[in-house]
């Protein structure tokens, strides 16, 4: 099971082809929009909600790493993508839960607030699709 994510030889399918092309595109869109947003927030009003803005910046970096990991081929890129997508899944679940339990501590929404409700729940679905895709392409071709 776990070996499918961490296969070390070159016999796996490329993660950037087929549906992967679409997945990398969506990761890129999230990296870009979250990154641009966090940059402006940190530059103009960092004192208002530093935790939320740093969290947005962190999410942007994770999306970027996942996009690069999925776009490139080879075992290192596959490992990188798997780690990034797992962090993304934990992040959206943890921040989603916390933002529901203690809304006062999240005055400024991040991509992961409310399980990504501001983004059509795509941030919640994306890591699941990402993990499925990594698992699916981790099979050795028959």
């Amino acid at each position: 099971m776990a070996s499918r994510f961490l296969i070390v030889d070159g016999s796996t399918r490329r993660t950037s082809s087929g549906p992967g092309r679409l997945l990398v595109l969506v990761y890129g869109v999230f990296a870009l929009s979250a990154g641009a947003m966090a940059t402006v927030q940190i530059a103009t009003k960092f004192d208002r909600a530093p935790e939320a803005y740093l969290l947005s910046a962190f999410a942007a970096v994770i999306y970027l790493v996942a996009a690069v990991g999925l776009a490139r081929s080879g075992p290192r890129a596959r490992r990188l993508a798997t780690v990034a997508v797992l962090i993304e899944l934990v992040g959206v679940l943890a921040v989603g839960t916390l933002s529901r339990l203690r809304p006062a501590e999240f005055p400024d929404a991040t991509v992961w607030s409310g399980f990504g409700e501001g983004y059509g729940y795509v941030p919640l679905v994306l890591p699941v699709l990402g993990l499925w895709w990594l698992w699916h392409t981790g099979r050795r071709p028959a």
Binding site: S17, R21, L22, V24, L25, G28, V29, A36, V40
Partner: peptide
């Protein structure tokens, strides 16, 4: 801040995304 993020993304995604997408010659 959110507006600037979306505005920047909206003009960058079609050209950059399409080049990435169309470099694969499949229906995907």
């Amino acid at each position: 801040a959110t507006f600037v993020g979306y505005a920047l993304t909206s003009v960058l995604v079609p050209p950059v995304g399409a080049v990435w997408a169309l470099s694969e010659k499949t229906k995907w």
